[in-house]
């Protein structure tokens, strides 16, 4: 399967392991991602805060480049990039006069904007049967809390998922043999981009999310966004120093938990670069599934 790939800035920096694990997993699932040539930042959470046109234009440049490259479908593994690209696409399509203005600003024409997938929708498209078919290890001792955060399924109607009770990530994770837990905070905000400027808020919000997952019996949290990951993983250090009784919990990217089930080890997936050590046993001796 061919697909256009918009990595987003984090994939080259703080979320290198997300990119690495994703590429490994896609190879096994016979997907060949084509990077958008010379892609640039979508403006993330900062452009739309200061200038509506800037945020539209930064996303539009990437959509125009993808179109020029002949890509009909693209996926963005970062939930924030996904949300920005899709929001811009919808706006450009709904407001022709705005589209014309943005085309002038970016000096590119936009005609057929590709279909845009987030990582969960994209794995749905690949199919859980395909994942199950390639699975080498059954992760049945995993009790996963799937964390969607804010930008994967909102605003309501952005994709087929329910914006209050989504279930798509659970479906994918279950294909690894893992159990998924029911919990209350899978859509609660972790404070997102306030991580540096208002660390105090992010520490509070992230702690509530982590506590709720633990309270409902999770032994791992699964995320689909570099920003969610850094707030829930890296910020556990800060949570621990503020709340001495806090119990830590590992946080995996969706691609990493899939990678473990496909037989890769922690190092191959970059899981060893997380702040919270991942030490759930991955028992290939328990249940070998013939490939």
């Amino acid at each position: 399967m061919q697909i256009g790939y918009y990595p987003g800035c984090s994939q080259e920096g703080t979320a290198k392991e997300y990119d690495k694990s994703l590429r490994e997993v896609l190879k096994v699932l016979d997907v060949d991602p084509t990077e958008i040539n010379d892609w640039s930042c979508c403006g993330a959470t900062s452009a739309h805060v200061t200038s509506h046109k800037l945020s539209l234009a930064l996303s539009a440049r990437n959509l125009a480049l993808a179109e020029k490259q002949g890509l009909k479908e693209i996926f963005a593994p970062c939930a924030a990039c996904y949300n920005r690209l899709l929001t811009s696409k919808n706006e450009l399509q709904e407001h022709p006069e705005q589209k014309y203005e943005i085309e002038t600003i970016i000096e590119e024409k936009i005609n057929n904007i590709p279909e845009i997938y987030n990582i969960v929708n994209f794995f749905q498209k690949i199919g859980k049967d395909k994942i199950a078919e390639k699975k080498k290890i059954d992760l049945k001792n995993f009790k996963a809390a799937c964390y969607y955060g804010c930008l994967l399924v909102r605003p309501s109607g952005i994709n087929s998922d329910d914006s209050e009770q989504p279930n798509s990530m659970e479906e994918i994770v279950k294909a690894t043999g893992a159990q998924t837990i029911d919990w209350n905070f899978k859509l609660e905000c972790c404070g997102a981009a306030h991580s540096i400027a208002r660390q105090d808020i992010v520490v509070d919000l992230s702690k509530k999310i982590l506590d709720d997952a633990i309270k409902h019996g999770a032994n791992v949290i699964v995320v689909a966004c570099p920003m969610c990951h850094s707030n829930l993983d890296m910020r556990q250090q800060n949570i621990k120093s503020k709340f001495s009784d806090f119990k830590e919990i590992p946080v995996l990217y969706l691609s990493e938990i899939l990678g473990l089930a496909l037989g890769f080890d922690k190092k191959q997936l970059g899981i060893d670069t997380h702040f919270i050590e991942f030490n759930l046993p991955v028992r290939n001796d328990v249940q070998e599934v013939s490939a």
């Binding site: 909102r154 309501s156 208002r198 808020i201």
Partner: peptide, 12 residues
């Protein structure tokens, strides 16, 4: 400035 752009309000 504190609004985190989480879209909860817009969804509901």
């Amino acid at each position: 400035w504190l609004c985190a752009g989480c879209l909860t309000c817009s969804s509901r």
